[in-house]
Every structure is written in structure tokens, then in C-alpha cells.
Design a protein around this nucleic acid. Structure first.
Lengths: 151, 151
DNA sequence: TACTAAATAGTATTTACTCCTATTTGTCAA
DNA sequence: TTGACAAATAGGAGTAAATACTATTTAGTA
């Protein structure tokens, strides 16, 4: 292993880019240099960037690219499964009276957050690797998908 | 049971309000009617409201309340543990190249998202109650806390 | 009852994201 | 290879969410 963290090395990156190109064509998407650049910048980092963060990186390659293009492209990648949005990110902050132990299911379409309770999820055991290194304040099982009304 | 979902009935609500009052005083916070109203409106719903949603409700009681007050108050409640923010909500959308199966730890202070991988978390078994009712697209164990740099 | 620190109202600003439109470009078929 | 067309992009405008700022009000207390 000569690559730290989850970063992708050059050979892997080129291979992934080829796969990505096919994936675009299969999905009926055009293979634009901007799209490739955004994809590659995303793979090159392990910092889970926002659209804004990637925009700054891609701008070094395409100085005239717009933030909207970066954002739209990332959402498109998410749709074809070439990249993912970090679960739970990107929505307005929501609050919870939190009276009982429970877990959340979030509908990606209508954005409803629905409580459910499954006892085995109440006390998840963390690996020592994590609990030694970080102060874990909250741990939960989080589900996303389509609710009964949207599905 | 004559209360649907997680909604709190009147008796419970009054009891919770008393507890909340003590909790404020213990934390050195003033007990203002606005604060009480916000807290009670939060408990009365199971829709996991945003600050904006609660603002609309509380405005019926205090027509001149400001959105900022609602938002600040909710963040304060979260700090003293009288309410909770829904895990993962309230931040800019973040993306992930998602090359390998992994889970996320999010630092609440610096907002870094850190990957970790704990095999037992890869295939969580859902209760039938959920998988029958909803189309679950993603399921994950999500951790929040303080990272090694902020802790 | 009067003082003080904390909280609030109202407004302004910042940030994240989405929408709109004219222009450009990748793809496909002749 | 070229031309047509749908898709994608650039740039800017618009919208929503969250935060910051400041003058005023209020809860706690002595």
C-alpha cells in the first residue's frame, strides 16, 4: 500500500475513468471533459467534498466552469451510481423532541423523516478502533429510500 | 393508547414542560415564554420539523417572534439535551467517490467526514415492518462526535 | 423595585443550492 | 466527414436556510 486513506492512485484512477466513460454511455449521458474532470477530482480526494469544494479544484483545470455544472454533475453521478451523496447531508436541519429511543427513515423524495424502532439497533457495538480515537456522541442506524406515499 | 405516533398527550406535555423548566434553570438558562412555546410545539409534533416549520407554529402564539429566535432556541435545546437535531441534517451536501464499502463518522465541530470500515455494519438486517412498507435504498450506521483533532 | 445579564425582534448578510437562457459541444446518422 | 440535434455548459439571477448584528425587552436576583 503506497496510497494513504481511500485516495485512488493514478493507475486505479485511469481504470476507473475508463469504467466511468462506459457507464455514462450506457446511461445515455455524454462524456464531456468537465464531467470526467469532476469525477476524477472526486476520486482523488477522501475529504467527502461539497460541490463548492470540488468546484475550486476543477476550476484549476477548467477556469470557466460554473458551480452549477459541478453541482448538477455530482447529482447526475449519484443518479447513475458513479458517486454517492453522503447519507443525510444536503437538507435543512431538522429537530426531534427525542422522547423515546428510535431510529430514522428519511424519504429521499418528500423529505419526510419517519421514526421507527428496532431494539437491536439501540445499542450498536463500536469497534475499539473508533471509540479509542474519537469521542462518539451519537450513533445510529440511518435509512434512506422511498416512503409508503412516494414509493 | 389514545395518542397516535409519538405525539405527546396533554398530561405528558405538561409534565415534560415542568422537567424542561428545571433543566433550563440547572443549565443557567432563563425560562422565557418563547422558549417554553418552542419546546412544547416541538414535542407536540412527530414530523421532525425544521426551524422554519416550528416558526410558523409558534407564530400563532407569539406573532412577533423571529425565525432567528426559533433557530437559536432549538440549537440551545440541542446543547442541553432537551431536544436533538436529526443526525446528518443541516449541512451542505457532501459527495463520496464510494469505491469501497464503508461507514461515516462526522465531527460535529470541524464537520469533517471520516471513513471507517467495520464489517459487521455492512449488512444490517432490517425488521420486516420496514422493508415491507418502504423501499429502502440505503442503510448505514452513522456516527457523530468529536474527531481526534477536535476532541 | 430596580439592576444586570441574557434573550428577543427585526433586519442584514452569508451561504448553499436551484433555475433560467443563450451558447457550445458530443453523438449519431447520412 | 459533415451536419443536425439533443444534451450539457457558462454565467447570472433567484430562492431558501442559516447566521450575524444591534437596539430593545425581560427574567432572575438582590
Amino acid at each position: 500500500m503506497n496510497n494513504k486513506n481511500n485516495k485512488t492512485n493514478t493507475i486505479e484512477l485511469d481504470e476507473k475513468t475508463r469504467q466511468f466513460t462506459s457507464q455514462c454511455r450506457e446511461a445515455g449521458l455524454k462524456v464531456t471533459p468537465q464531467r470526467i474532470a469532476i469525477y476524477r477530482e472526486l476520486l482523488k480526494t477522501d475529504e467527502h467534498p461539497s460541490a463548492e469544494m470540488l468546484y475550486e479544484k476543477v476550476k484549476k483545470i477548467f477556469p470557466s466552469i460554473s458551480l452549477d455544472t459541478v453541482n448538477r454533475t455530482l447529482l447526475t453521478l449519484n443518479e447513475i451510481g458513479a458517486a454517492f451523496t453522503v447519507v443525510g447531508s444536503g437538507d435543512a436541519r431538522r429537530f426531534d423532541g427525542g422522547l423515546h429511543e428510535h431510529q430514522h427513515f428519511r424519504c429521499v423524495k418528500c423529505k419526510r423523516i419517519i421514526d421507527f424502532h428496532h431494539k437491536p439497533f439501540d445499542n450498536i457495538k463500536l469497534p475499539a478502533e473508533i471509540s479509542e480515537k474519537f469521542t462518539v456522541l451519537r450513533k445510529t442506524v440511518y435509512l434512506e429510500g422511498l416512503c409508503n406515499l412516494c414509493g
